[in-house]
Nucleic acid binder design. Sequence first.
DNA 1: GCTGTTATGCGTAGACCATACGCAGAACTA
DNA 2: TAGTTCTGCGTATGGTCTACGCATAACAGC
Lengths: 253, 253
Amino acid sequence: MAAKTDDSGPVLPASIESAWGLRERPPKGPRPGMSVPTIVDAAVRVADADGLAAVSMSRVAKELGAATMALYRYVGSKDELLMLMVDTGYGPPPGPPAPEDDWRAALTRWAWAEHEALRQRSWLLHVPISGPPITPQQLGWMEDGLRCLDGTALGEGEKMSVLLLITGYVRNEATLTSQVAEGSRAAGVEPSEMMPAYGRLVARLIDPARFPALHRVLSAGVLAQDDDPDDEFTFGLDRILDGVEALIRRRTG
Amino acid sequence: MAAKTDDSGPVLPASIESAWGLRERPPKGPRPGMSVPTIVDAAVRVADADGLAAVSMSRVAKELGAATMALYRYVGSKDELLMLMVDTGYGPPPGPPAPEDDWRAALTRWAWAEHEALRQRSWLLHVPISGPPITPQQLGWMEDGLRCLDGTALGEGEKMSVLLLITGYVRNEATLTSQVAEGSRAAGVEPSEMMPAYGRLVARLIDPARFPALHRVLSAGVLAQDDDPDDEFTFGLDRILDGVEALIRRRTG
DNA sequence: GCTGTTATGCGTAGACCATACGCAGAACTA
DNA sequence: TAGTTCTGCGTATGGTCTACGCATAACAGC
């Protein structure tokens, strides 16, 4: 009752509304010298080049040859800019599933597409997300994911839950992978030597009597050689899809 | 070959080494007026009260009646302090699995324990984690998790992968839940009205022809009533454990 | 063509932030 | 007692976001 909830729901930031094509420009006043997409593209360029930490309002403005405060005519806050950066950073959604794919193949392809987007733009993982997706492309990804489950016997709520489960997994796995990469760059170590070095460090720290299971894992050489991160990704994804498959079979049969 | 890798592996920050009980204090000089645990506790207190964003070096120092720069004698940087905050924020690990529990019950209990820790201290989710765990309690959680899989036919590497899968899921689910809570607080909306409001907003934005699957989900009223977040958590966890169970059966049989 | 309205570009300034550096003094060793 | 070493912390630098307000440009209506 506190907020305006007549039929419009929560208030949408102006820049997001314009991303949906709502809200046309009033004809008065001087022509804008920039546009929201221009600013977002510049911010994405900065993040691509120097990481998310380099994205400051002044840096983005410099990229455009504009003054810092000029940006605030287009985006309401830095957080709003970040949300729009995420939207364009993911890129266009992967498209509907191929007709010859069953739900599992389609969902696998979808997960790999998100994985690839996050691999190319690892700064996406560092953007603090502050709510469910409301930008056009983000919802486009959701749409394409939901379509993968179209033919199945799952309820609509279950489809959504499954998608949430998978996108969460993809994000998480990508986060771990990029942390290894960034850590190795920061420490000046070969990426292939990162996990082995971590294994040696933990082995040196822990007392085998207090950490028997961990000690056993390390003794088995689990972290000693660098595994292909893609194998790790496939492993977890297949476990989850096995679980989803079990549910679908139960609903079908 | 670039870094010092004789037998010590990567260099450990001083405050972390002292958390493991290594590195005793040299006997010279004035007695320290504070200690690392004192500082970390104060920082945790600030985060508990006002969120992670309120944790600045000056705020923590004020909490202790000390000067800002005094903290830097104990922790090398704010990031180091954050790492130590996470270690104590999680609290002690849940302990080894109960003898009467099978792996699935044990792992479920472990996941709920982490879920609960993250629910009580949602600022833990906002700490940018910058690498695999190296602090004592963090590795303690890992140890207790690995023990849940002790009797199974999984390989050591598979146990680690399963644990990574589950802890990632728990974190992800907790993140989503806390975002809803924080969003409702920020918007001044009842938490139970948050997801329905989101559903109405998305329904208003999307064109049913371009987003048919999404439209169908919303029409089915998926977001209309607020589901119990615990049910959502249980759903995803059971899917993952079903997948793990399938793997264990394959390895056993 | 003139006037009023409105939107833009952006300069200034305030309130934070992390942290590099260096100095005064305390507590130990020899 | 002299020398060494470590603590506490004041000062200063360079960065952040953004509130506010002013000059100006472009349109609408008369």
